[in-house]
Design a protein around this nucleic acid. Structure first.
Length: 495
RNA sequence: GCGCCUCUAGCUCAACGGCAGAGCAACGGACUCUUAAUCCGCAGGUUCUGGGUUCGAAUCCCAGGGGGCGCACCA
């Protein structure tokens, strides 16, 4: 058995003998003068009477999604990236009519002709000439249902995108969301920057990294789990408002809400605190919904979801107390929290302090039942190694998370600027790491050195783009909003 | 990583212990206004893989593989 190419190609559903494809005479055009898009034609010629002849010649191109040959006439539904339009061919008008009537579903066709409506009133291009731009040698699945098998859909996304409108729409919303964010941040004085993806020390979040190796330097490098520490270095360097939209990588499980690589927006604003972060979060999340969907009142997975600000705010301790029915805080006796945790099925580790216990209780008792947008504030210092201590509440930080539809969407805080405090926090993390917590951080000496030069008061904010798009696209699975989600390699052979 | 569910024609699905089927796609044909066009014909299978139970297994059991969902972890 050949080791070079796994046998992916010899599909039983090939429509043609592959040898024909390269046979002389089967040469497809190198370009096509497409001048009109389906959606534009629909706009331009809306409301024509049945049987109308406009006398206007147009040229369209796209894939044939349906074909209805009918003796000396033929109809076909052509879809381009804007939408669909009907092609109408007649034996005594259309060049090469016999060939047209034999076109297959999925073939790429360019067509020129007059805009008309049929007797039934369907807007159509009455084809005078046409050209086969590329053929579909494999079938497109059931013409009505397309393909629905999730495995095939994501492995062969090119088929999914043509046959499933919602798949296309989700990726379009993703693109529009990122474009909107860029415009918003640009118009608010933020500068887009790029920071390394290959990190000598993974940092900025608590997560297991992917490890890789650089040959020339003969050293381990890590794919970034967050850009945070580099972005703050740029603030030290004098850039007051920066942001990055980029891929981060976490070596953790795959689930409907987790892909090993995902896209994060991180922004940093000098002279601002987490109050500004809350304001920005509400404005951006509701703003992008209104811009793309026309409203901030969404329906998500069959339930109403209103993103209109202001969102409810509550501290983590308040929420936990509310859920447990008992007044709790990071100052509560540790044994009391351990007992409560046990009652919620949480096995408390020796190393956990009251802050970690509160956070665990929060995740277990509160988070799953949350739906409407909520700003959870004042996270325990123990679980927030990069956040600045709360200005008036000991043991807490000025950190908040935005929880929407039960999921963390935004994590932000007033940044820790004090190099001495940061060193202590890093060292505690490093200790946890040595004790076996693979997600704990390491001491980043260069970052500490940067803080020595002075980080001004700064607000930092991270927003999960994939999860935001899930809300906008009403997608229940993160893979719906990622063009090529991470999958196990194909088992072998063809599907 | 653990639990539950699932895998049948290219696609979407039936058959649930007794002859492996349908619709669509493909292929051949008919058809001058269709809209998932319609009609006639033809072809299409390692029922995920390997064992077992049984007179007989797509169907029941065991193991493995792919996929889905939930839990755990996180964003």
């Amino acid at each position: 058995m050949s080791e070079v190419d796994p046998p992916l190609a010899p599909a039983p559903d090939l429509k043609l003998d592959p040898s024909q494809a390269s046979a002389p005479g089967r040469i497809f055009p190198y370009s096509f003068d497409r001048r009109d898009r389906a959606a534009d034609l629909r706009d331009r010629f809306a409301g024509l009477e049945p049987g109308a002849e406009t006398g206007i010649e147009v040229s369209v191109a796209g894939r044939l999604m349906l074909v209805r040959p009918q003796g000396k006439l033929a109809f076909a539904t052509l879809t381009d990236s804007s939408g669909s339009i009907q092609l109408f061919a007649l034996v005594n008008l259309t060049e090469g009519f016999e060939g047209f009537a034999k076109l297959s579903l999925g073939d790429w066709v360019g067509a020129t002709g007059q805009v008309v409506t049929t007797k039934k009133g369907e807007l159509s291009v009455k084809v005078s000439s046409w050209v086969l731009l590329a053929e579909a040698r494999r079938g497109f699945g059931d013409k009505w249902r397309g393909i629905t098998d999730p495995d095939t859909r994501f492995r062969q996304r090119y088929v999914d995108l043509w046959s499933n409108e919602t798949a296309r729409r989700a990726l379009m919303l993703r693109s529009q969301t990122i474009a909107w964010m860029r415009r918003y941040l640009d118009s608010h004085g933020f500068m887009e920057v790029e920071t390394p993806v290959l990190h000598p020390i993974p940092g900025g979040a608590t997560a297991k990294p992917f490890i890789t190796h650089h040959n020339a330097l003969d050293m381990e490098l890590y794919l970034r789990i967050a850009p945070e520490l580099y972005l703050k270095r740029l603030v030290v360097g004098g850039f007051e408002k920066v942001f990055e939209i980029g891929r981060v990588f976490r070596n953790e499980g795959i689930s409907p809400r987790h892909n090993p690589e995902f896209t994060m927006l991180e922004l940093y604003q000098a002279y601002a605190d987490y109050e500004e972060g809350i304001r920005l979060t509400e404005e951006m999340v509701s703003g992008v919904a209104v811009a793309l969907l026309g409203t901030a009142s969404l329906e998500y997975q069959g339930r109403p979801l209103d993103l209109t600000p202001p969102w409810r705010r509550a501290s983590m301790s308040e929420l936990v107390s509310e859920a447990v029915g008992e007044q709790l805080s990071v100052d509560t006796e540790r044994s009391v929290l351990v007992e409560l945790a046990a009652r919620h099925g949480i096995e408390a580790d020796e190393s956990w302090g009251t802050g970690k216990l509160i956070a665990e209780l929060f995740e277990k008792a509160c988070e799953p039942s949350m739906w409407d947008p909520l700003i959870v504030t004042d996270f325990p210092l123990e679980i927030s190694p990069l956040a600045r201590p709360h200005r008036s509440k000991p043991g807490l930080t000025e950190r908040f998370e935005a929880i929407v539809a039960g999921r963390e969407l935004v994590n932000a805080f007033s940044e820790l600027c004090d190099p001495d405090d940061q060193r202590v926090r890093f060292e505690r993390q490093a200790l946890l790491h040595d004790q076996g917590d693979e997600e704990a951080m390491a001491v980043d000496e260069d970052y500490l050195r940067a803080l020595d030069y002075g980080l001004p008061p700064t607000m930092g904010l991270g927003l999960g783009i994939d999860r935001l798009v899930m809300l906008l696209a009403d997608a229940g699975n993160i893979r719906e909003v990622i063009a090529f989600p991470t999958l196990r390699p194909e088992a072998g052979g063809d599907k």
